[in-house]
Design a protein around this nucleic acid. Structure first.
Lengths: 135, 135
DNA sequence: ATGTGTACCACCACCACACATGGAACATGT
DNA sequence: ACATGTTCCATGTGTGGTGGTGGTACACAT
């Protein structure tokens, strides 16, 4: 369990013993800090290297969290200038693509099942379709 | 490599060293025999126990092949009376749901990817959707 | 030089699944 | 009694994905 005081405020809590993936914990903690107002839009975030060393995580883990947060427009990376809270972060906190993902896949799977496909066959076809690159 | 003479005709060839799953080889061999006319509609097939012992396969493997062949209406199991080639087998030989399966899943996955979803996220959502029972 | 994000290499532990095996029991009908 | 398909128990092996770690290197700008 590691706490990080950022801007003089304790906001990041990582539990190394939790079954929850570390990068996911980090994502949720940052979102929570923004929602609580501890981090405001356009505020600077610690660099990947600083966060990884202070939280005692690998840089790759922090990088992964940042990459996903940026995709969802919760943060903004500006190259050598560092990473910042996205101006519209508050609006994008709840924009979860996961529910939509679940619905889409559930719909497709129901259709395939109705056609008589075995779950095993669906899994195999799914693996094949996913491994097919879209290059 | 095992050959089975059925009705005095060699028609089943199983390669134990092939990467192709055994149950799949069996399915294709039976379909091929029907297509070639070596097995005709309403012809009787060897029992699961006989086939498994003569081909040196486990009964479960043969059972799996038979179950899938029956789902596709290529064969017909009549309980204690044995298993027979389906009367409409020739029409159902080409009814491969696999191509359709591949297309459906590829289409869905492309849509999800375009929406920015990670392959990992897609996999997680897929697993969740598949584990959701339709009872 | 120093710091930023980013991209690649490799490795390990864990877990879920596919495939196949073995054995046992059941209901069916002859 | 006998043979049919069916269904449950269990085990093992191999494959492949995930999460995480470690290191190195690059382009960028101060």
């Amino acid at each position: 369990m590691v706490n990080l005081g950022l801007n003089g405020i304790d906001m990041i809590t990582i539990d190394l013993d939790s079954p929850e993936p570390l990068f996911n914990q980090l994502i949720n903690q940052i979102k929570l800090a923004i929602q609580k107002g501890l981090l405001k839009p356009s505020d600077p975030l610690p660099s990947i290297r600083k966060l990884s060393s202070e939280l005692d995580l690998n840089a790759k883990t922090v990088t992964k969290a940042f990459r996903l947060l940026e995709r969802d427009k919760v943060i903004e990376t500006k190259g050598y200038r560092g990473t910042f809270v996205h101006p519209d972060a508050l609006q994008n906190l709840s924009s979860d693509i996961h529910e939509w993902l679940d619905d889409q896949l559930q719909e497709t799977i129901n259709k395939l099942r109705d056609a008589g496909a075995t779950d095993s066959e669906i899994r195999i076809a799914f693996k094949k379709a996913l491994s097919t690159q879209t290059n």
